[in-house]
Design a binder for these strands. Sequence first.
DNA 1: GAGTTTGAAACT
DNA 2: CAGTTTCAAACTC
Length: 661
Amino acid sequence: MDTPQKSITQIGTPISKSKFEDSPVFNYINSLSPIRPVKSIPIPHPFSSLSFTSPPSVFTSPHLTSSHKESRFFKTHHSSSHLTNPLESRPDSTSNEQAVAETTKDFNIDASTRDESSIEVAPDDPVASPCGEDTTDLSLVPYSPPRGENCSSDDAGMELQKMYDNVQGKNQTPDWESLISDASELLIFGSPNDSEAFRCLMMQRASTSEAMTNNEPESSDAIPYEAASILHRGMRRRCLDFEMPGNKQTLSENNTTVAFESSSRCVVPSIGLHLNAIAMSSKDCKTNVTHDYSGKIQVGLQGSTSTMQESLDQTENETREDADQVLEDVLEEPALAELNLSSPKKKRLKLEAGEGESCKRCNCKKSKCLKLYCECFAAGVYCIEPCSCVDCFNKPIHEDTVLATRKQIESRNPLAFAPKVIRSSDSVQETGDDASKTPASARHKRGCNCKKSNCLKKYCECYQGGVGCSINCRCEGCKNAFGRKDGSSVADMEAELEEESETIERSRTAQTHQNTEVLVNKEASSALPMTPMPIYRQQLVQLPFSSSKNMMPPPQQSLLGGGSSSAIFNSQYLRNPDITLTQSRDEKSFETVAEDGGEEMPEIIIHSPKANIKTLSPNSKRVSPPNLDSSSSGSILGRRSSGRKLILQSIPSFPSLTPQN
DNA sequence: GAGTTTGAAACT
DNA sequence: CAGTTTCAAACTC
């Protein structure tokens, strides 16, 4: 931290604006640069300053990895704790109902909650610009959710311009430290898109300022910005998701610049953190850092483009290895990993993911997407364009309302936003042997209340969550395939399926041997539909730590122990009722495996043998969620002999405002 | 795509 | 806490 502070004094203090303007160099530059002085002056300062004053995590050597991120986290955490959640700091937010009622109004941040140095947002902020509206929150809420969908990269410049204007208007001797602070807020929490603008500005600065002797401002910036954006990507997830198309430009794996831009726009679909980020900050940073990583991974994976899909399909294994490699890199060099993940090869995952969680959409008509009825809201994500909701308030521009509503709901039920499917406390102890004996290591938080579905349809939350019913359930005629309320476990069913699978596999093997025999084709064709499962299973079997014993219904993200928005993951996970139990069990094996690892280190779960399922499940439209996409690589990870558990958490814990069990 | 069913969420 | 209503997803046709 010494360096940054030092830099502040060195750069910020000494360089007086007037002096700078009067300098011959400045004049000369002005004459050359198309950039107008009024902008070139103010903006560069914040930036240059920022580049030295921001937390180490942002501007320190790119070599920093985890610590790097932690710093970042602390930074943001710190900020959030002070600036915080508007709900807590804003008196006018005490009335949730009111907040909800005034949804369309209360978008401006109370000046009172800001630091004196905070940049005041023009009251006449762009009307139609969601970006403009949101930017007002930037300095107040570190984890400010996504800007409008179409925020232009110019916004950053605008903000900075405002800052400059403001400072200039008030003081001839700007409070650089404050300004820097504000600027850093913008840089850190602004729209990822802004990073582009920043980069441009930085470049300009680099080319025009002698102060830029500092080497590689580029690289050092890129990563930091990226890192910063990650923190709230979850909140921006939806917006960014739809910016992806624009980023589908062909990416060169070697072109870090392009990769960066792409990644900066990518979003972690995962993450239904929109409202949780704030609360999340209070958690131990380790956990958050982990989420961060997973988020990164996802960003990369989901940033896939369709362009590679075909080729990837043909080289599934290769892709997996790539993913494996990438993930490995992620653990050691997040920033780098992210860049890597931007590679075209991983794009495919994104594509597939696009249809899943990341594109989770609701169809609310009356709830305004502010009730748990709304899947998006319940999952902690903002509604997105594809949603068919009416009068939706679950959008970034209504952040306050969303937060208020959320808080209100949580006041009623603290666990309202907690994962519906929770992992039993003893599940952790369930290793291999026990796993199969227990219907499921995860259970629905409250249990279901099914009357007619027999817990065999997704009406049943337990079933939907891929967990068996438990004593908590009040269901009638429970036949939950993942475990019945009466205690009958899946073990039996698994045994059956196992047997069946084996039979199928055997026949398949036999077929393979008889490949040369044309006559066999007849039978083979009839058996084809069945091959999928066997194949899939085979792959799973390859997993070093995979155990057939663990073959269980797919556990949910909840297995991670962290509260994650179960909704998204779970629902998506088993969205397709057509998915055979076998498949589910396979997926389960993944998670169990990861769990078995026992290590409590950052985990990146990658579930989703989506590709496999897709191919193997003839009648399934969409077998696995987008998140799971990455899972295709997940299985890869599973193979890792290193034993490192990589859990790509599609939905980082869904930190609720209140501690959850 | 429209209509029905279902069960969670919300309300009383 | 129980009963009822509202709601939107899941499902069916």
